[in-house]
Nucleic acid binder design. Sequence first.
DNA 1: ATGGACTAACGTCAAAGTCG
DNA 2: CGACTTTGACGTTAGTCCAT
Length: 152
Amino acid sequence: MQGFPSYSMPNPGVAEHAAIVSCVGLAADCAPFYIPDGGVLVPAATGEMPAHQIHTPGSGLPQGIVMAASSTGLIVPQHMAEEATRKREMRLMKNREAAKACRLRRKEYIRCLEGQNTMLVMENRQLKQELAAYRTLYSHGANSRYSNIPKM
DNA sequence: ATGGACTAACGTCAAAGTCG
DNA sequence: CGACTTTGACGTTAGTCCAT
């Protein structure tokens, strides 16, 4: 991990008790923020810029970006953190829709395979019946040219 | 009524794939 | 090569069924 912002708590880490984490950098618009008991400051998967979010055990819900960082380690102004949050939300929203579409496609594909399977099972059954009928038709004693066809 | 097993749907993440 | 898309994996939640 690199390019993390500078703040008053070692990063990333668990706050044993509720903690107020404040920026150490010079940015005037970076307000201190609150980490609840047991909360963990983790890198956020923004994909666009380094950032942090708070993860609290027991809450599976995503947390908003609380702090963004530049590659130089300096605190990024709040509007950039908001931009990172906005981009993250856009990405999550798009992925949500993509996942729905993907599941639909997969369901449709499975339905299609099941349909094919049903058809093939029926066709196989019919072919076996036809074969049995031909056997009966052409079997005239042990010398029949079809008598050595293995039974199914 | 209740608790456990099971299933379907969902959201998110991460990795792989695709495209300009 | 970076942005974007697709998809497998995983955890969560809600609904249903069934035994107790």
